[in-house]
């Protein structure tokens, strides 16, 4: 069974790019165009990882991250922010909202997959520790 990744991203081209890359490396990608949809889908499919854009229409990425971590059934799913926010304090705010990682746009396809796999394996290790 393929590992499922939830991608919350409003820009169509970027959504296509990330999805293409992840699928090429054998992941199943579920897309959400906004935060509200993202929250619903996360609840339904329980993905192994959530890639979250911060600048979203309506509910922004910070709120989505906070909502996800509040939910006890979803709080173990690692959230990685993929954003072009680069101002002072952005990284801190993102981490404070509940994300485990931060990838700055524009992404480098050569290194992007390596980072994703690192976050996934870290999450698996963490889950195993928890079970033990």
């Amino acid at each position: 069974m393929k590992t499922t990744i939830l991608l919350i991203e409003d820009n169509e081209r970027n959504r296509y790019l990330t999805t293409f890359l992840l699928e090429k490396y054998g992941y199943q990608v579920v897309q959400a165009e906004d935060g509200q949809t993202g929250l619903l889908l996360a609840q339904q499919i329980k993905p192994a990882l959530i890639l979250l854009d911060i600048q979203l229409p309506g509910m922004d990425g910070y709120t989505v991250a906070r909502e996800l971590t509040k939910n006890t059934t979803l709080q173990d799913i690692p959230i990685v922010a993929v954003t072009s926010y680069a101002m002072v304090g952005d990284r801190e705010r993102i981490m404070a909202a509940g994300c485990v990682g931060y990838i700055e746009k524009p992404i480098n396809p050569m290194t992007f997959m390596r980072e994703i796999e690192q976050y996934l394996s870290a999450a698996i290790t963490k889950l195993k520790d928890k079970d033990a």
Binding site: N11, R13, N14, L17, T18, F20, L21, K24, Q55, S84, Y85, A86, M87, K105, P106, I107, N108, P109, M110
Partner: peptide, 18 residues
């Protein structure tokens, strides 16, 4: 402006890389 420029750049660099 710098933030807005990154969004299209993401596609350019990303697809070229792919």
């Amino acid at each position: 402006m710098s933030h807005e420029l990154r969004t299209p750049l993401n596609s350019i660099i990303g697809f070229t890389g792919i």
